[in-house]
């Protein structure tokens, strides 16, 4: 270690602190606009700020590119990150692990339960179309996906999981009036507990924008996914929880 854990941005010499930023201000392009851009850069800690590009866009907007020396320091020893407790895998890697280690298709059953008709969440995770440029679980060759759609009753879900020999059950809940999402989830996890012995019970996963990700134990499920979850994260978690993590625990 040289010089401790404090760093600053690197332009072309150590310690020069140079950064490049671009932004738009809602003002027409003139001298005052350029001054405003420099002022913003200064407030961001860029000083001196070199305004290298200013261009009018649309009506009453100006786009700027600023280079300059930022006076902030970064203390690496003070960096705190929340680590995901499973590795993020590509679709290819997920397929490879399932094929090699499970030696059969991993069966996933998904549904919106209760009166919730919002399939946006479950479809984003399961449909090939996916979300945010990531394909849904149907796209994974080694996953066998059954999407039951909306307004599925808990007994129907349990039965479908049994028929499909589900390794995992994914439930999406968007509607949260009178805590419907929490009641539905508890009902669902209790039904699975009642219907199947622990060893045969599929992994239970719920997702939705209003869940608290730390409530899994309380709701009787294995995992909760919140807003912004992508299919890749869910697939990676499935592989971790059902295959790689489990083997490691046994060994």
């Amino acid at each position: 270690m040289t010089g401790g854990s404090v760093v600053r941005p690197y332009g072309d010499t150590t310690g020069d602190g140079m950064v490049q930023v671009s932004f738009t201000l809602p003002v027409p392009h003139d001298k005052r606009a350029e001054g405003a851009a420099v002022q913003l850069a200064n407030k961001m800690g860029v000083d001196p700020a070199l305004l290298v590009h200013a261009k009018p866009i649309g009506d009453g907007f100006t786009f700027f590119v600023v280079y300059g020396r930022v006076n902030h320091l970064v203390d690496l020893s003070a960096v705190r990150v929340v680590e995901r407790d499973f590795p993020l895998l590509s679709a290819k890697e997920v397929n490879a692990v399932v094929k090699r280690r499970l030696r059969r298709k991993l069966s996933v059953v998904g549904a919106c339960i209760g009166t919730d008709a919002h399939t946006v969440g479950i479809d984003a995770i399961l449909n090939v179309k996916g979300i945010a440029g990531e394909k849904g679980l149907e796209y994974y060759r080694e996953l066998s996906v059954t999407n039951l759609g909306a307004q599925v009753s808990v007994p129907e879900l349990v039965e479908a999981a049994r028929v499909a020999r589900a390794d995992a059950v994914l439930v999406s809940q968007v509607v949260t009036q009178r805590d419907a999402h929490l009641h539905n989830t508890r009902e669902m996890s209790a039904a699975f507990r009642e219907a199947m012995p622990a060893a045969r019970r599929p992994l239970l996963i719920v997702g939705g924008p209003r869940f608290d990700e730390s409530q899994a134990g309380e709701l009787g499920v294995d995992r909760i996914f919140g807003r912004g979850t992508t299919p890749g994260e869910v697939a990676s978690y499935l592989v971790h929880a059902l295959i790689t993590g489990r083997k490691a625990a046994v060994a």
Partner: peptide, 14 residues
């Protein structure tokens, strides 16, 4: 900015 954000005014202009 595909796959990053829905396009900003400046993204579209560029």
């Amino acid at each position: 900015t595909e796959a990053v954000v829905t396009p900003w005014l400046s993204d579209r202009d560029i």
